[in-house]
Design a protein around this nucleic acid. Structure first.
Length: 857
RNA sequence: GCGGGCGUGGCGGAAUUGGUAGACGCGCUGGACUCAAAAUCCAGUUCUGGCAACAGAGUGUCGGUUCGAGUCCGACCGCCCGCACCA
């Protein structure tokens, strides 16, 4: 009885829940559904503390909602494609598929040891052809719907590895593995037309009321809507014969009269055209490309340009022609890849103008400024003001000038209002092996031909050479050779695979009907979706969550589903942090290799040498400040680890992992264990409350109901740390109650039942065991959530603070809702109050019923 | 640079949303039990002064609103995160 045997109990209850299929669910119209989902893991091989937190949070929600009577879907799967499998395959001489399968087995075992209430019958792995075959079909549907297309695009090219690198794999302009300078190359790439939904993805953010504001804001910024205008400048000067106009995009069309140059991106068609006969310009463009992504270029951000012989005529001043530059700070990907420069009212334009000696003509002046003398110094003028030097706009404010200019542009045909987005189409091609093959065939005669549906899935070849440079699918001797489905001639498979964000953009929907022979069984997705509560790291705030929102819309457009938003509620968890340790040489030390001496100093466990303790940082392999969850579960059990994950910090905040913290959780587990098991002579379950309860017992009785109420409200609002605190407080009260008091035994039984039920979603094994020991026949997982008696939530007496001039001088205990006069009279009699008043004139007494009294003297 | 968040005891964090600051936990101090240790239990623990009663100060800094401010407003300081030449 002394110590809780978690090993035995956790294994026992896990086996029993499993055997009884407690968490397997199906559609059930009789009960309200609740779909709780945690972001599925990449099968790296072992779970880390971030997983433990994520899945503890999810399991708490799932078990709580289940107890509240919901039909809860709580599935788990594996985000199983990705580059690490290829790297591991090269290092360990295994096949990516083998490596991935082994990792999944290992991690599944670890997750099961946590006692999570998953419906394991719905498990999926995205590398399974029975999964990815459906996304190949989706892609073909997207293609038919115009949501997928192919075009040239710039990529990071590693000339040594002979492959494309993701942005994350380019470090300081060099390939992360080869160290070779990365080149920009233009390749044909597949894209998904996420920009078609830009406005909708933005507007619908407002409807996601149960998402953190922060995430909504990040998506809003990412989509980056701006309102402006396209303006066409007529080209003059020494221009290519067929280049008549230059179209630019601006949000400051009000400043058009301040234009002193135009600039195009290095990759702008006009620049490329001019470069054909101009080696100097060619060199400049090559230079821009080379420096484009490097850290150095972005850091220094030096504005550089090449002045072409082409000029552009101002749309409203026939006599004004401005030079056209090719400039390194103009982005081809945004707007039209061309701008007009108004140096007086734009930081970059001003820097550029000063460097190249261009006019700086102010066209907006501060309201109080003298228009005749207002001039721009080192800083552009960016505020609202009055238009000057601007013909028909003079005297207007910025907003009115924009409106008027837009009208004039549209009337004259020189331009029109336009909305632009920062968001770009999603490039999904990856020149990698361990991903889902893109199901198209390239035919010399027919062009791009979709793989016929009957031929799906296009599966990966098993015999693959991962050691040679380049795309392994490209290198495969036979895999890509195929007959054209249309003309039957020799053709070639697409050898690119999908970005792995593709798989994670629809997995939540596959969980609804994981065995369906189509992507989804419609009744299943209609019943379960959207996900009611999604939980995961904030690092996915934009990419994964935005892609999934887009995918859901695209799937709806193609008739797969009937909803727009996949995740009705989102909770983003903070990171797990840990102190960092370094030895005298500055090398990082793992927590297991240091120990704390009696005086608090930290030393190396082996040599006793001094260790510097750094601040707590996110657990990471590079800093070696990681703690292995399996070791913790071995030493303390899953329930203890889970409790600690919930105890100290709110879920969205970072959590400091400490040895002392896990010890504290372990202490509480044992305390509960001893308390419940040590109680003698409890009345059997269901015994009615005795009439003769002492005041102390009745008070604890009330505390039990207040705790049930408070914890329930905390869980609804995801305030798990305060929920834990309340439960511990009730535990303290129950321990303190004198068992000799009349009615105490009954109240203690009520309290034990309540505590055990409240901790059920947090520490399910311990709770299940204690529930049984308390004499209940049903499983705790099948027992409804406790309900508080509303009559017991309000006290009959209240403690009212009494202030004099805002300073607390005492308290009075009075019956609830007694009159203000009575409260005031009691308050003024307090010795501390009288002393503080000290014979001065009482000017005013403010009484806030049941709260506080403030005496003003 | 732009956008957002956060500053409360030795530490993690509470505070009914303007009403008794510091719940709960960790740590620490003292005591009980023990030959001893661990475990457990009891008491204390914001700071300053005092044996104490008590008094004063106190939620990053300065100012404001209010009977009353951790909470609202203004300015500043510091830390963290996201985006970053987006015209």
């Amino acid at each position: 009885m002394s110590r809780y045997n978690f090993k035995e109990n956790e294994a026992k209850w896990q086996a029993l829940w499993d055997e009884r299929g407690c968490f397997a669910v199906g559609e059930d119209s009789a009960r309200p559904k609740y779909y709780v989902l945690e972001m599925f893991p990449y099968p790296s091989g072992r779970i880390h503390m971030g997983h433990v937190r994520n899945y503890t949070l999810g399991d708490l929600v799932a078990r709580y909602k289940r107890a509240r009577g919901f039909n809860v879907l709580h599935p788990m799967g594996w985000d199983a494609f990705g580059l690490p499998a290829e790297n591991a395959a090269m290092e360990n001489r295994t096949h990516p598929a083998t490596w991935t399968r082994d990792n999944i087995s290992a991690m599944r075992r670890q997750l099961k040891a946590m006692g999570l209430s998953y419906d394991w019958s719905r498990e999926i792995a995205t590398c399974d052809p029975e999964y990815y075959r459906f996304e190949q079909k989706m892609f073909l549907d997207f293609l038919a719907a115009g949501l997928a297309y192919r075009r040239d695009s710039w990529v990071n090219w590693d000339p040594v590895e002979d492959t494309v690198l993701a942005n994350e794999q380019v470090i300081d302009g060099r390939g992360w593995r080869s160290g070779a300078p990365v080149e920009k190359r233009r390749l044909q790439q597949w894209f998904l037309r996420i920009t078609a939904y830009a406005e909708d993805l933005l507007a619908a953010l407002r409807s996601l009321e149960r998402w953190p504001d922060r995430v909504r804001l990040m998506q809003e910024n990412w989509i980056g809507r701006s309102e402006g205008a396209y303006i066409r400048f007529e080209l003059t000067g020494d221009k290519p014969a067929d280049a008549e106009h230059l179209e630019i995009y601006t949000t400051r069309h009000d400043t058009l009269f301040g234009a002193s140059f135009c600039a195009v991106a290095a990759d702008h068609p006009l620049a490329l055209r001019l470069a054909e006969g101009d080696p100097e310009l060619s060199a400049f463009i090559a230079e821009c490309r080379r420096l484009g992504t490097s850290e150095a270029a972005i850091e220094s951000a030096e504005k550089r340009g090449y002045r072409t012989a082409v000029a552009a005529r101002h749309p409203f001043m026939a006599e004004r022609e401005v030079p056209v530059f090719v400039a390194n700070f103009v982005l081809m990907e945004y707007g039209t890849g061309a701008i007009f420069g108004c140096p007086a009212h734009d930081q970059r334009d001003l820097e550029f103008a000063r460097k190249y000696g261009l006019d700086v003509l102010p066209v907006v002046a501060p309201p109080e400024a003298d228009a005749a003398t207002f001039a721009i110094g080192d800083e552009p003028y960016l505020e609202d003001g009055v238009l000057i030097n601007s013909d028909f706009l003079d005297g207007l404010d910025v907003a009115a000038a924009k409106a008027e200019m837009a009208r004039r542009l549209e009337d004259s045909g020189a331009g029109e209002r336009a909305v632009n987005y920062r968001l770009r189409d999603w490039g999904v091609s990856r020149q990698r092996y361990w991903g889902c093959p893109i199901p198209v065939i390239h035919c010399g005669e027919c062009g791009v031909v979709p793989v016929p549906e009957n031929d799906l899935p296009v599966t990966l070849p098993e015999d693959v050479d991962l050691d040679s440079p380049g795309n392994p699918l490209d290198n495969h001797p036979t895999w890509s050779r195929v007959d054209c489905p249309q003309c039957g001639g020799a053709a070639r498979r697409e050898t690119d695979t999908f970005d792995t964000f593709f798989e994670s953009s629809w997995y939540f929907a596959r969980f609804c009907s994981p065995d369906a022979d189509r992507a989804f069984r419609r009744e299943a997705v209609d019943y379960w979706l959207p996900v009611d509560q999604y939980i995961g790291g904030v690092e996915h705030a934009v990419l994964h969550l935005l892609y999934s929102r887009f995918f859901t819309r695209a799937l709806r457009q193609c008739g797969y589903l009937g909803i727009d938003e996949p995740f009705a509620g989102l909770m983003t968890q903070g990171m797990i942090c840990h102190e960092t340790f370094r030895d005298a040489d500055g090398a990082w030390l793992p927590p297991g290799e240091v120990k704390r001496l009696a005086d608090g100093a930290m030393v190396r466990a082996d040599t006793g040498a001094a260790v510097t303790v750094g601040r707590s940082e996110k657990m990471s392999k590079s800093r070696k400040n990681v703690v292995d969850p399996e070791a913790i579960i071995d030493a303390y059990g899953a329930d203890t680890a889970r409790l600690f994950m919930l105890s100290d910090s709110p879920p969205d905040r970072d959590l400091d992992w400490t040895e002392a913290g896990i010890e504290g959780a372990w202490r509480y587990v044992n305390r509960l264990w001893r308390m419940v098991n040590g109680a003698a002579d409890l009345p059997p379950p269901g015994t009615p409350m005795p009439a003769d309860c002492s005041a102390a017992a009745a008070d604890v009785h009330r505390t039990i109901h207040k705790t049930v109420d408070g914890v329930t409200r905390d869980l609804e609002r995801f305030r798990f740390n305060t929920a834990v605190a309340r439960i511990r407080e009730l535990t303290n009260r129950l321990e303190d109650l004198d068992r000799a008091e009349a009615g105490a035994a009954w109240v203690v039984r009520e309290g034990f039942d309540a505590v055990v039920r409240l901790v059920g979603p947090m520490m399910p094994h311990l709770a299940e065991e204690l529930w049984q020991r308390l004499g209940h026949a049903a499983l705790l997982v099948d027992t409804p959530w406790p309900e508080a008696d509303p009559a017991l939530l309000e006290d009959e007496t209240v403690t009212i603070g009494v202030q004099v001039n805002g300073k607390l001088r005492g308290t009075v205990d009075l019956p609830k809702d007694c009159g203000d006069d009575a409260v005031e009279a009691e308050a003024l009699q307090l010795p501390g109050v009288a002393r503080a008043i000290g014979g001065k004139q009482v000017r005013r007494v403010i009484v806030v019923p049941n709260r506080i009294v403030n005496v003003v003297v």
